[in-house]
Design a protein around this nucleic acid. Structure first.
Ligand SMILES: [Mn+2]
Ligand SMILES: [Mn+2]
Ligand SMILES: [Mn+2]
Ligand SMILES: [Mn+2]
Lengths: 138, 138
DNA sequence: CCAAAATTGTAGCCATGGCTACAATTGATA
DNA sequence: TATCAATTGTAGCCATGGCTACAATTTTGG
């Protein structure tokens, strides 16, 4: 797990994996709700042009997260599915934590999307414990 | 405050202001502890080459956050000091929140460096309230 | 005061992630 | 089925933020 003593170095590393995590997560969710994932779906979701999505998808394909043929749908590889599931789980924990803290849902959803990539395993565990604790209360 | 319904759009905006915030904050702290801030100080702090710092400093100068003459020290403008103070305050709140949650100092410092840029005002307030609450306890 | 070390600047490269404009393909429907 | 709409691809642009290599300047020690 390499405990980077330099905070900014870790933050930069977090950012370098952020796109892959958000994309595979989105692909999984779109497939789950529409049957197949297309470039337009991701463009709408992320609020970017379809060109940006196409280029990113091609990078992620080269990196082994997904596959796609010309004019075809976007499909996750085994690796892509693994990362998507891990990311979704972590996203969920962060979101539930913010909700448990009493933050409004729409704000919590926005904050979680950015925060999720910077939460260490230790912090994630504390978040989980906190949520579990609030469930027990009244 | 514009409540971006699209999480990823907000996250991208957070990232677009991140460098300026981290730099002015660092400049303020270096000045405070060494009397003056130089390119090397920032390069060490951020774990990047002096070239990266030079280029970024020149961008931030163009954007009005700081000034610097050739081979001279880096000085914050009024705007730079304002942003630095705000950023330091927010950073401190996030850090103290993580510590109050029971996270180890070194991990908390690393996580805070990334998280701080994605915390909305509402969430920041809840963080503050949580820390204040734990202070009262035993 | 001068040489070596440290610092800073400059040139030029790369990857990521944005965009517009336009072309090609596919899908829907009249 | 022929056309129009939607989707996807491609070309080419930009800004940010990394880097190495080398040049210039400043600082420091003897
Ligand atoms: Mn995200
Ligand atoms: Mn997410
Ligand atoms: Mn930061
Ligand atoms: Mn971030």
């Amino acid at each position: 797990m390499k405990t980077d003593s330099k905070p900014h170095v870790r933050t930069r590393r977090d950012h370098s994996t952020e796109t892959a995590e958000d994309y595979v997560e989105a692909v999984l969710q779109v497939i789950d709700s529409r049957g197949a994932c297309r470039v337009v779906d991701l463009a709408k979701r992320f609020g970017v042009s379809h060109v940006t999505v196409t280029k990113t998808v091609s990078r992620l394909q080269a990196a082994g997260y997904l596959t796609s043929e010309p004019y075809g749908p976007i499909i996750l590889t085994r690796k892509g599915r693994r990362v998507a599931n891990e990311s979704m789980k972590r996203h969920q924990i962060v979101l539930e934590f913010l909700l448990a803290l009493g933050i409004g849902r729409s704000v919590a959803e926005v904050d979680a999307e950015g925060m999720e990539h910077h939460v260490s395993q230790e912090t994630l565990s504390k978040f989980e414990a906190f949520v579990a604790g609030r469930k027990g209360d009244g």
